[in-house]
Amino acid sequence: MSITEFFIEAAGNYVATIGFGILLNIPRRALNYAGWIGVLGYFVYKFLVIWGGGYVIGNMLGAVVIGVASLQAARIKKMPMILFNIPALVPLVPGGQAYQMIKYFALGQNSTAFVFLIQVVMISGAIAFGFLLSELVNRVQQRVWRHRG
């Protein structure tokens, strides 16, 4: 990935996350944080894929980072966590694979379609599992927090 690509992808993710936030009507003062969390989550996924981690691990860790970062943003801004993690999740959605699956099913090439179906299921599962892990991290962190305070 070249430097230009990096900046184009960062800008694209930021803008897209904020756009999705506007469609869901999240409050204005949450938009900026949500945008940055979206960029962060996507690059965790992207770099893991580039460094050979595979797309399942990449999506999973991307979702973990989004979940943990959203809780921090929620604490700083004193707003509900879902304002941050729902828009930030959008760049990780397997839209490309889902589309290819639909396309090949529609064209009657079922064996190719199943390849994409499996990818979609794996990625969705990885994101869900990533959220589970981030919830775990958050709960452990809250425990530590409470014991200290």
Partner: peptide
């Protein structure tokens, strides 16, 4: 916002 979601994500 709809344009902001669709165009940039296509590029990404």
């Amino acid at each position: 916002a709809a344009a902001m979601v669709s165009g940039p994500l296509e590029v990404v």
